[in-house]
Amino acid sequence: MTTIMENLLNQPLVPWLSGAGPEGEIVLSSRIRLARNLRSQPFPGRASAAELGEIVAALQQVPADLGEADGHKYELAALDGLSPLARNVLVEKHIVSPSHITDPENRALIVRDDASVSIMVNEEDHLRLQCLEAGLNLGDALDKANAVDDIIEAKHDVAFMDTIGYLTACPTNIGTGLRASVMVHLPALVLTKQMGRMVAIATQLGLTVRGLYGEGSEAAGNVFQISNQVTLGRNEQDIVTSLNGVVKHIVDKERMARELLLNESPDLLADRVWRAYGVLRYAQSICANEALSLLSEVRLGIDLGVIDEVLPEVFTKLLVMTRPSFLQNLAGDTVLHQADSNKLRAKLIRSSLQKS
């Protein structure tokens, strides 16, 4: 296994989950994803195994082309060359989608050394290119994505029509092929029971709100993904501007909800976050979802100054480290059963809080 893939699998904190960037205490990351297809081949859902293999083969030079342009190292990894555990770790780190690893044969991943650029090969489309930035930074993510797209399109003929735009497997992606999304931490809106109204507003504005791992997932740890639903008939800048405006509104509402909790029930808030800290600090066994829920409340306490002995980045670090596949990867050849996993998770949390 190469150094890039080893680092990607073993290091919990990637730059775009550092907690830095605009609105970083609430907006964890921003992502731009572009869907592209090679004109000469059928969409992955209709392609034969041989055709899927031809698509992977046609993209072998892409890592070198990208690296020459920006000075970073890129590599192409065949998914069926990775263990099932490694593939699940990539899902937990938001590098690939759950559907991309369902059938790994003739599917691949192109990834940059800092994981801020990755390309899923033969997911729903031939290319699912994504660029990530820390905080609310959709503009820089879009610039990076367009630069990568230009390099690829300079050497590969992609499916495009002047009257429609980019052709994609799913009709909702036709046009720009762009999905812009942000990952946000909204514990105060959840605690004050305003989250339902925020979801309704976002839906009315053509956005969708999903859980931690996107479509079909739950909002573990009060972390949500907000993204655009429609690409046809809208240009890239309109999509990004619209999402940016809605997210800023939600961020303002989250801040107001935090102030409400701090001003109207400071004792209850303090008791809640310190109880969460106490459980995490001393628990000998804890399941994944309970850990994320308590870590969310501790992070809220840190952001509001209730807890001053823990660094904010502990939350984003443990957001990855406490996931089941990442824990198993840390354990190496030792098979973790549920009880073992819960014990190791608690141990890592205790250690992280002590070091912080």
Rank of each mutant, 00 (worst) to 15 (best):
199 V>Y: 00
200 A>V: 09
205 L>H: 04
206 G>I: 06
207 L>T: 05
208 T>V: 14
208 T>W: 05
209 V>R: 03
209 V>S: 07
210 R>S: 12
212 L>M: 14
213 Y>L: 13
213 Y>K: 02
215 E>S: 09
216 G>I: 02
218 E>Y: 09
218 E>R: 12
218 E>G: 13
220 A>N: 15
225 Q>Y: 01
225 Q>M: 08
227 S>R: 05
227 S>L: 04
236 E>C: 02
236 E>L: 00
236 E>H: 03
240 V>L: 02
240 V>E: 01
241 T>Y: 03
242 S>G: 13
243 L>V: 05
244 N>H: 12
244 N>F: 06
245 G>W: 01
246 V>G: 00
247 V>S: 03
249 H>E: 11
251 V>M: 07
252 D>T: 08
254 E>R: 02
254 E>D: 05
255 R>W: 01
257 A>C: 01
258 R>P: 05
259 E>D: 15
262 L>K: 15
264 E>M: 12
264 E>S: 13
265 S>N: 13
266 P>S: 10
266 P>L: 11
266 P>K: 08
268 L>P: 04
270 A>Q: 15
270 A>Y: 10
270 A>S: 15
275 R>T: 10
276 A>G: 03
277 Y>N: 12
280 L>N: 06
281 R>Y: 13
284 Q>N: 15
284 Q>E: 13
284 Q>G: 14
286 I>V: 15
286 I>T: 07
287 C>P: 08
289 N>E: 13
291 A>E: 06
291 A>N: 08
291 A>G: 09
293 S>Q: 09
295 L>M: 13
297 E>H: 08
301 G>A: 05
301 G>I: 00
301 G>V: 02
305 G>S: 09
308 D>W: 09
308 D>M: 15
311 L>H: 15
313 E>Y: 05
315 F>L: 07
316 T>Y: 10
317 K>S: 15
318 L>M: 14
318 L>R: 11
319 L>G: 02
319 L>E: 06
320 V>P: 06
322 T>W: 01
323 R>I: 03
324 P>L: 06
325 S>P: 03
325 S>R: 08
329 N>E: 12
329 N>K: 14
330 L>S: 08
330 L>V: 06
331 A>K: 01
331 A>M: 01
332 G>V: 04
332 G>Y: 01
334 T>H: 09
335 V>K: 06
335 V>L: 12
336 L>H: 04
336 L>V: 03
338 Q>M: 07
